[in-house]
Simulated assay, not measured.
Amino acid sequence: MRLLFTALGAHGHLFPLMPLAAAAREAGHHVVFATANDFRPTLEKAGLEPATAGLTIGEAFAAQFPGFEPGLARRELPPEELAATIGRVFGRVMPERFATDLRGLFEQHRPDLVVYEVGNPGGLFAAKTAGIPAIGHGFGRVSSDGLMADIDRSMREYADELGITEEGPAWGTPFVDICPPSVQAPEFLASAHRVPLRPVGWSDSGELPDGVADHSRPLVYLTLGTTPMSKQGVLASAIAGLSGLDADVLVATGPSLDPASLGEVPPNVRLAAWVPQSALLPHVDLVVHHGGSGTTLGAFAAGAPQLVLPQGADQFANAEMVLSAGVGTRLLGDEVTAESVHSDAARLLSDSAVADAVRGLADEVAGMPSPAEVAAQLPQYT
């Protein structure tokens, strides 16, 4: 069977699909993975056949903002205009470009099934207009709040132009859902054709930092993700708070921030531009992070409590999910101070009720179907 996977050009959108794509390849299917050209090396390293389609998020915003720089729109646009622009970028600019590019790819690789990441409905729209079966693949809890309403509005307008009448987020197709049911949106659970899939972490391979696998005292992992944003102040406050714990602190600063810009840090803190997160999480006692879906679900699976410092997009919904599940807490905006981070982190490292909730959620994740099991189901959707 010929499969075409497609995802937006961003780690948080690409990586959730990688385990299923790899499992489908291992099952003997011909897998082509279409995304922005920046991720070609990642796909090749994973043994997947890459194809170039669409834009990166940065390229899409640059098309809307001449002279675009990360954080520029967030700082300079009024909130209503910013929300409308984000809605247009994710709901129209990127899907339209992906749909155009994929139609060309279909002429070279006529797939039996398109597996589209739901943040990239261009994959769905291209498949529907070409008469090819499609199945969605989620990356976390399904939300229609906040910015998602603006994105959905732009998507709906584009779908109407194409004559597509079904509604999102699944648009009438089956939906591979990697979110544990106990924390998934109830309205989505009640209405969607779900195909449950265990969230399996994926990151580029690499060596764990020295001492991680056999640490003798609590290990705290701090990350604000890989997407460029103005985050130096939040990281500095978090580092200051966490460094006062009787714990070791490992900080992944991400590719957009030079670790040297944070200055000298206390001896129990280590800075790294990148770590192999999926390999790291099982060794971590607490995850302090931005609320990205990959980190949130990875911590669920690893059985680690979470302190979430959301910065944008779906991160606020993920922070609420963590709080509601009893597996962690959150700090919003000006609440992020060294003192509050220290206090919350210290409590999460010792709270037995949180530890019980974390174990229960990890058991739920472990009981979900594996990528190999779901890959075996894909032929029935053609």
Rank of each mutant, 00 (worst) to 15 (best):
G9V: 08
G9C: 10
G9S: 08
G9K: 07
A10S: 15
H11W: 12
H11L: 05
H11R: 15
H11I: 01
G12K: 08
G12F: 03
G12S: 12
H13V: 02
H13Y: 14
H13S: 12
H13M: 10
L14E: 00
L14V: 11
L14T: 02
F15Y: 15
F15Q: 09
F15L: 11
F15K: 05
F15D: 06
F15E: 06
F15I: 01
F15P: 04
F15S: 06
F15M: 12
P16L: 13
P16Y: 14
P16N: 14
L17P: 01
L17D: 04
M18P: 03
M18V: 02
M18Q: 01
P19I: 00
P19R: 06
P19E: 07
L20Q: 04
L20S: 04
L20Y: 03
A21R: 10
A21H: 08
A21D: 06
A21G: 06
A21W: 07
A22E: 14
A22R: 15
A22Y: 00
A22M: 15
A22H: 02
A23W: 08
A23L: 11
A23C: 09
A24D: 07
A24C: 10
R25L: 12
R25W: 04
R25G: 08
E26R: 15
E26N: 11
E26M: 06
A27G: 09
G28A: 09
G28D: 12
G28I: 06
H29G: 01
H29S: 08
H30W: 05
V31T: 05
V31W: 08
V32N: 03
V32G: 02
F33D: 03
F33E: 10
F33I: 07
A34Y: 09
A34G: 03
A34D: 05
A34I: 00
A34S: 07
T35E: 05
T35N: 08
T35A: 06
A36D: 13
A36T: 01
A36R: 05
N37L: 02
N37Y: 00
N37A: 14
N37E: 14
D38L: 10
D38H: 12
D38F: 09
F39L: 13
R40V: 12
P41Q: 10
T42W: 08
L43P: 01
L43G: 02
L43W: 05
L43Q: 09
L43H: 05
E44G: 00
E44W: 03
E44Q: 15
K45C: 00
A46H: 02
A46D: 07
G47S: 05
G47Q: 07
G47T: 04
G47R: 13
G47V: 03
L48V: 02
L48P: 07
L48Q: 10
L48M: 04
L48I: 02
E49H: 11
E49S: 13
E49D: 14
E49W: 01
E49N: 10
P50I: 01
P50Q: 04
A51T: 01
A51C: 07
T52Q: 10
T52C: 07
T52N: 11
T52A: 15
T52V: 15
A53L: 13
A53K: 13
A53Y: 13
G54S: 02
G54R: 05
G54W: 02
